[in-house]
Amino acid sequence: MKIAIIGYSGSGKSTLANFLGQHYNCEVLHLDKIHFTSNWQERTVDEMTDDISTFMLQSDWIIEGNYSACLYEERMREADCIVYFNFNRVNCLYRAFRRYLTYRGKTRPSMAEGCNEKFDFAFVKWILLDGRSQKNVTKFKVVVKKYPDKTIVLKNQKQLNNYMKKVKKLL
């Protein structure tokens, strides 16, 4: 099983990826974890692409995150299932703030070591505005249109809960 999880920041992609990884006994790659090094230093696209390419050689994988410059189309094409989190911005902001309260002063498991959780103006702006640019919205719409038979769109917590219940029943 190969699963790509995409969508807006703060929507719950990492949480679902961990759930699916445990459920299917499958390794998870959190792209934030390979995008950053300690203290929020960014790695190059080439470095990330090398890591993703190697990870994708496995027969089963779960890749969580967007990073369209890093084998995005290849990930979507090779995935057996694409889960697209299309939660509204206010919900994402609330979830990100709740995550901040949980991990304040610490590094969350889906982030690179030494990147303590933060909730600053730039991140709030990303969740509410920049991350929802026309380019990003279009990128997600293209995936849904190009891969309708293998894409699951989740718009709220109720749909996410139902999806997780359905997955639990499959095995």
Score class of each variant (00 low, 15 high):
Met56Phe: 10
Arg77Lys: 14
Phe123Arg: 00
Ile34His: 01
Arg99Gly: 06
Thr138Gln: 10
Asn136Ser: 07
Glu47His: 07
Gly7Arg: 00
Lys139Asn: 07
Ala17Glu: 02
Glu47Met: 10
Asp32Asn: 09
Gly7Leu: 00
Ser110Leu: 01
Thr138Ser: 11
Arg75Met: 10
Ala122Asp: 15
Phe121Pro: 13
Leu16Trp: 01
Ala79Ser: 14
Glu27Trp: 04
Tyr24Lys: 08
Ile34Glu: 00
Glu27Arg: 04
Tyr103Gln: 03
Trp126His: 12
Asp60His: 10
Ile82Leu: 02
Leu16Phe: 03
Ala79His: 00
Thr15Trp: 01
Gly65Ile: 03
Val143Phe: 02
Val167His: 06
Ile5Ser: 05
Thr107His: 03
Leu93Phe: 07
Lys158Pro: 12
Ile62Asn: 01
Arg89His: 12
Arg98Lys: 11
Val143Ala: 10
Asp60Cys: 14
Lys169Arg: 10
Ser9Ile: 05
Ser11Lys: 00
Lys13Asp: 04
Asp51Phe: 02
Thr54Lys: 08
Lys150Asn: 08
Val45Leu: 10
Asp51Arg: 07
Gly65Lys: 00
Phe123Glu: 06
Arg98Pro: 04
Ala4Thr: 13
Ala17His: 00
Lys139Leu: 10
Tyr163Val: 12
Lys169Gly: 12
Glu117Arg: 07
Val143Tyr: 01
Phe123Cys: 10
Cys70Pro: 05
Thr44Ala: 08
Ala69Phe: 02
Thr37Val: 15
Tyr147Gly: 09
Thr49Arg: 14
Lys139Tyr: 04
Lys155Pro: 14
Gly7Cys: 03
Leu93Asp: 03
Asn116Pro: 15
Phe119Tyr: 11
Ala122Trp: 08
Ile5Met: 05
Thr138Glu: 12
Lys118Arg: 15
Ile3Pro: 12
Ser38Gln: 11
Arg98Ala: 11
Phe121Asn: 13
Asp32Glu: 09
Val124Cys: 12
Gly12His: 00
Arg89Ser: 13
Phe55Leu: 04
Ile62Ala: 02
Asp51Leu: 13
Ser14Trp: 00
Thr102Glu: 03
Val45His: 08
Tyr147Met: 08
Ser110Glu: 10
Ala112Ile: 12
Arg104Phe: 12
Ile152Ser: 06
Trp61Arg: 01
Glu73Lys: 08
Tyr84Arg: 03
Glu64Ala: 08
Met56Asn: 08
Asn161Ile: 15
Tyr103Asn: 05
Leu154Tyr: 03
His30Lys: 02
Arg43Met: 09
Leu31Phe: 03
Glu47Ala: 10
Gln58Asn: 05
Glu27Thr: 09
Phe140Thr: 07
Tyr84Cys: 13
Val143Thr: 10
Asn25Ile: 14
Glu73Leu: 07
Lys166Ile: 11
Phe97Trp: 06
Ser53Gln: 12
Leu29Gln: 01
Val45Glu: 11
Gly21Asp: 04
Lys158Ile: 15
Ile152Lys: 04
Ser59Asp: 11
Ile127Asp: 01
Ile3Arg: 06
Phe121Ser: 15
Ile127Gly: 02
Lys118Cys: 15
Tyr84Met: 14
Gly131Phe: 03
